[in-house]
């Protein structure tokens, strides 16, 4: 331990060193017995994985382009379950149109039926979520977005009830392949980095190249039901976006057998 007037003396210069002692070293305190039981130790703060993320391919670009935030979203997510069908109202409106970039995504775990309490950097390294939401953006835990290996496809002109099996064509599934080999992001027509929910909707008649119709506002495309697979966990879910208003999603999903 050093008492820091030593450097202050350096700053002040010789002419102002009056009263400063020669030595700055102190003997360590003696006779210490502490209550070091781990169970009694309160953890303050945490060490995050921002640096680990930055070392991943295109990690720096991800941090900057979304941009990823180090705070966990405090947004409201209300989820109910009845007969195996989860219904959620998920508030991804934080920041509004102008301030969304400085707010984190809201992460959802379809298996637990709960909001995943992760910040964006943690989520990029976590398998504990399936979908992430911000304003009108939906990311999936795959490709450049995360290590979860989630696959997403879409069944059109159907109903939630009619979808009762997992589409078998592997080429129908998409992932969040946001960056090319040089880490340049693929962008949708309004400049948002592309996710699986863009690639599945490149032919959206409204030109949005996303899950929504754009024309006098944003609205889900009627008859679109998504299938979200988590191959590692061996589960799949059908998911319908039933409503969207100013960043607040209405969702329902159920496991497919």
């Amino acid at each position: 331990m050093k008492l820091k007037y030593a450097w202050m003396c350096a700053v002040l210069g010789a002419g102002l060193m009056v009263g400063c002692g020669e030595s700055s070293e102190q003997e360590e305190p003696t006779v210490i017995e502490t209550d070091a039981g781990d169970e009694d130790v309160e953890q303050i703060g945490e060490v995050d994985d921002r640096d680990a993320l930055a070392e991943l391919p295109c990690g720096e670009e991800m941090l900057a382009d979304w941009p990823l935030q180090e705070e966990v979203s405090d947004a409201s997510v209300e989820i109910t379950e009845e007969g195996g069908v989860f219904t959620a109202t998920l508030d991804a409106s934080a920041g509004g149109t102008q301030g969304a970039a400085s707010n984190p995504f809201v992460y959802l775990n379809l298996t637990t039926g709960e909001k995943a309490e992760l910040n964006d950097v943690e989520a990029a390294l976590s398998e504990g979520w399936h979908l992430g939401f911000k304003r009108f953006i939906i990311r999936s835990n795959s490709g450049d977005s995360g290590p979860g290996g989630v696959l997403v496809t879409k069944v059109s002109n159907t109903t939630f009830e009619e979808v009762d099996s997992v589409p078998g064509n592997p080429e129908a599934y998409r992932t969040d392949d946001t960056y090319d080999a040089s880490c340049t992001p693929e962008l949708d027509p309004i400049g948002t980095p592309m996710t699986a929910f863009n690639y599945l909707n490149l032919d959206n008649p409204s030109g949005s190249q996303s899950w929504y119709s754009y024309g006098g506002g944003i609205s889900p495309v009627a008859g679109d039901v998504y299938v979200v697979r988590d191959p590692e966990a061996g589960v799949a879910y059908k998911l319908e976006i039933t409503g969207w208003s100013d960043g607040e999603f209405e969702l329902r999903w159920a496991e497919l057998n």
Partner: peptide
């Protein structure tokens, strides 16, 4: 063993403190 809080030792410090 007597305690020593380590803050009243000689050998350093500005007298202005």
């Amino acid at each position: 063993v007597p305690s020593n809080d380590g803050r009243d030792e000689e050998g350093g410090g500005c007298s202005q403190a």
